[in-house]
Simulated scan of single mutants.
Amino acid sequence: MSIHIEAKKGEIADTVLMPGDPLRAKWIAETFLEDSYCYNQIRGMLGYTGTFNGQRISVQGSGMGMPSAMIYLHELIKDYGVKKVIRVGSAGSYQKDIQLNDVVLAMAASTTSGINNSRFINSDYSPTANFDLFIKAVNYAQKHGIPIKAGNVLSSDEFYEDNPKAYEHWAKYGVLCVEMEAAGIYTIAAKYNVKALTILTISDSLITGEQLSAEARETSFQQMVEIALAAAMP
């Protein structure tokens, strides 16, 4: 056991999908994995292990924001030997051509957070995706006719910003969308030489104000999870 995960040694696979929402972790396990079992219920942050196409896969909720996600990923790597992690999350669009339910691959993650200030003093570290996982995801999407966007995303420390137009500055520099975990996940993965990728489904648009329901955010991200599982295969 670690501090926040009660799994025994061997109960977590070396490849983990990480949604922020623990109920999305439950939905992924029940929908996509065979013979899945729950290995963690501490703080309600559900974790499951099962098989997909004969490959052991785990799904672990990470909570909202970089501090929470980094705690869970640190323990998954250090205490359970995880080697690959794929975040499957929701995001808010910054661009007119990125609409509800579109899938975005985060090649890199800018951030408003100061998480790396103590690691890289007077410097800017650029957290990026692992190329092998990224290209597998791209190839699967193209083969199956799933439209994707790929590029820079913003990992924000705030969900509700004081200035509702703040996104426009990032959008001008080509940032595709906003979420809250990728930069932290990519940083911890790089620190421990672990492969990481973030795949996002657009749940909101900061341009139009459209948004998916809470239920849809938990259970309607089929294409994103299919891409993630394909990328997770050896």
Rank of each mutant, 00 (worst) to 15 (best):
S220Q: 11
L76F: 08
K195D: 11
G61Q: 09
T51Q: 05
Y37G: 05
D79V: 10
G61E: 11
A150Q: 05
K149Y: 10
H4K: 02
E226A: 10
M64I: 09
Y140M: 07
D102Y: 10
P147Q: 06
T31Q: 08
A228F: 07
V82D: 07
P67W: 03
A91S: 11
V194K: 04
S203M: 10
D97A: 15
L76V: 15
G209H: 08
R56E: 04
A137R: 11
Y37A: 09
A190L: 02
V178C: 11
Y186D: 14
Y160N: 03
I207K: 05
A214C: 13
L73Y: 03
A182T: 12
I199P: 10
Y72H: 04
S93G: 15
M224P: 00
E218R: 06
E75R: 14
S126P: 09
R24I: 06
L17G: 11
Y186P: 08
K26N: 06
W170N: 02
S155W: 00
A196L: 09
G61C: 13
I42Y: 09
V103F: 12
D204M: 11
N152T: 06
K9W: 02
L154C: 09
T112Q: 03
L176W: 12
M66Y: 02
D132G: 10
G151F: 01
A109M: 00
S110D: 04
D97L: 15
I135F: 08
Y160E: 05
C177T: 08
V194P: 02
F52I: 06
S155Q: 08
T198D: 03
K8R: 03
I5K: 01
G92T: 14
Q60E: 07
A183N: 04
D21I: 01
K165V: 04
Q41A: 12
L176A: 02
G184Q: 01
C38D: 09
Q99Y: 12
K26C: 03
L212W: 12
H4D: 06
G174F: 11
M180W: 04
A182L: 11
S113K: 02
C38V: 14
V103M: 05
G92W: 13
T112P: 06
Q211D: 04
A25D: 08
G63S: 15
Y37P: 04
V85S: 08
G174Y: 15
V178Q: 10
S110A: 15
A150S: 04
L23W: 14
A29N: 13
K149S: 13
A25F: 14
V16Q: 13
L73P: 00
K96F: 14
K143I: 02
I115K: 00
R119E: 00
Y140A: 10
K172P: 07
F159N: 02
V175I: 15
I207F: 15
W170R: 11
S213D: 13
F120A: 00
N193F: 09
K83L: 06
T49M: 12
A129S: 08
F131G: 08
A216Y: 00
N130A: 12
A108V: 13
E218V: 14
